[in-house]
Nucleic acid binder design. Structure first.
Length: 500
RNA sequence: GCGUCGGUGCCCGAGCGGCCUAAGGGAACGGUUUGCAAAACCGUACAGUCGCGGGUUCAAAUCCCGCCCGGCGCUCCA
């Protein structure tokens, strides 16, 4: 693997090699579960899903950790609004989040730690478990002089004690302070306006944990330090999230972790934001699109394709045109697999096994790898899929060995991107051309044969009768009717009519 | 204001010093095919040259400078 990726900290594309050859560890900042997820969450989750799938496809062992923030001010506020407990609220929205990510065919992360599991040290102690809770991390920061206590308010990180502050966001502390004027909520007792909370004292009725300073709850950034280091260890490979998290969240994480003497993340990766109908998607615009809503109009495969046709760092434009274009694109790929399937079925190639001979075609795989390893250039990778589709359509039904190679190649590429979710190695190691093309067609949302209702079967029968009598007026009418029921028709001069 | 990313055809969107007579998808138009369609394939127009103006270079969409415009960030948002 010869991967290059854009590292936010460096500000350019750099060579990437995992700390341990063949193993890649990724920490992707997950959601705060106080509301239903929206397209932004989907985009970020799919970005890291694709990255981890590709790296795995390329032969690495990948560990993807994505956390859940289940305690913070928004959750407390929302729980109060809904007259429920923070725990119940977080549970509920976490469940919805995971269900919707599954609906998008996003693979669950290898581990999904929650902030509340990381407040205190695990049973048996930090050293034994190789993971430290937030309270013990904060204690270390206080003891080391990087943090200070404001009585009755909380524990704050002193940014002047960390000389590299601002490097991730490419700003100087002075700049940050000036541009933050009027935005930063003044806190009585802070030494510097940029100082931020590591621990917040609990107000009456709020969830609280016992701590050396005062009962309270953790600040935002410290949770990700505890979870990323706890799950992946110091010097893990990639820390990711949406680009809106660069500052203050990730900057502050760095400050905390590096002040502990940790190397922390080796690379920082950030995915771009989502625009809806040419406008930024934001609460103030009141144009948040929920995943459920969107999945009523587009398949998860098509949605993923729409995302992949834009580079992960660019702004993603979502509107009806984008989604329709992606749906048409998936149909195009699906149609090709269907044509191959038919060809295999009609020629009885079904009986021929190609186990030994199926060969992914380097003419596609090689540039595909190059595209993906160039900072995950999925638009170029997707273009190669369409090149292959055209070439396979052109090849026609005659050369079954070549068709098989096309199918295996297509399967590899679709799997590497997660458009298709089966493992090709397991699925296709002992199968036929028909089985491969059928599997791909079905996993792209294609229909299997003869699963029509009696009503539809009746209409088909009527139409066939009409056509036999050359009554085209009636048969065309029935065709329209069938189409409105979702059945597409393809007549052929010397082959049976197909119903899709 | 500061930081950062970007401005490419009708739309989306690659390319980032010569292979660009600018990938790929969608939409449009014409042809082959079809009873007519659909799908597929072939072809065409779309980018009078890649936001604008300078510069570097034998060579620039690609590098540099300036300007204009947009996104994101600038204390709790993926």
């Amino acid at each position: 693997m010869n991967l290059k990726l854009y590292d936010t900290l460096v500000g350019k594309v750099v060579d990437f090699q995992p700390a341990k050859a063949g193993e890649v560890s990724i920490y992707a900042c997950g959601p705060t579960v106080y509301d239903v997820p929206h397209l932004g969450h989907a985009r970020t989750a799919i970005t890291y899903d694709v990255i981890s799938r590709y790296l795995e496809w390329a032969g690495n062992k990948v560990c993807l950790v994505s956390n859940i923030t289940d305690i913070d001010d928004k959750i407390i506020a929302r729980a109060a609004e809904e007259k429920t407990t923070e725990l119940e609220l977080a549970e509920r929205y976490l469940k919805i989040y995971n269900e919707q990510m599954a609906a998008l065919k996003i693979r669950p992360p290898d581990r999904q730690p929650r902030a509340t599991e990381y407040v205190t040290d695990p049973k048996g102690g930090a050293a034994k478990n190789k993971r430290q809770g937030m309270i013990s991390i904060i204690t270390e920061l206080v003891d080391g002089g990087a943090a200070y206590i404001i009585e009755g308010l909380g524990v704050y990180f002193d940014v002047t004690k960390y000389s590299d502050y601002g490097r991730l966001v490419h700003r100087t502390p002075k700049d940050l302070e000036e541009s933050g004027q009027g935005r930063i909520e003044p806190v009585e007792g802070k030494k510097n306006p940029l100082d931020f909370a590591l621990w917040k004292a609990a107000k009456k009725g709020e969830p609280e944990w016992e701590a050396p300073w005062m009962p309270g709850r953790p600040g935002w950034h410290i949770e990700c330090v505890a979870m990323s280091l706890g799950e992946l260890g110091d010097g893990f490979d990639i820390h990711g999230g949406g680009s809106d998290l660069i500052f203050p969240h990730h900057e502050n994480e760095r400050a905390e972790a590096c002040s502990l003497g940790k190397q922390f993340a080796r690379h920082w990766v950030h995915s771009g934001m989502v625009n809806i109908n040419g406008e930024k998607m934001a609460k103030s615009q009141n144009n948040f699109v929920n995943i459920n809503q969107m999945l009523e109009t587009i398949s998860p495969e098509a949605f993923r394709l729409a995302l992949l046709q834009t580079h992960y760092r660019s702004i993603l434009e979502i509107d009806d045109d984008t989604l329709a274009a992606a749906t048409a694109g998936i149909s195009r790929i699906k149609e090709m697999t269907r044509l191959v399937r038919n060809s295999a079925a009609h020629q009885n190639l079904d009986e021929i096994k190609f186990t030994q001979d199926a060969t992914p075609l380097e003419e596609y795989i090689k540039p595909f790898r190059e595209a993906m390893e160039n900072d995950f250039s999925t638009p170029a990778a997707v273009a190669l899929i369409f090149d292959l589709v055209r070439d396979a359509n052109k090849a026609g039904g005659s050369d079954e060995q070549r068709l098989l190679n096309f199918m295996v190649t297509l399967s590899e590429m679709l799997t590497a991107l997660g458009i298709v979710t089966e493992s090709p190695a397991a699925k296709f190691s002992a199968t036929s051309l028909f089985e491969i093309s059928n599997a791909l067609n079905l996993s792209l949302g294609g229909a299997s044969h003869s699963k029509f209702s009696d009503e539809i079967k009746e209409l088909i029968k009527k139409r066939e009768d009409a056509r036999a009598e050359s009554d085209y007026e009636t048969s065309d009418q029935l065709r329209d009717e069938l189409l409105s029921l979702g059945v597409q028709i393809q007549d052929h001069p010397d082959a049976p009519t197909e119903y899709i």
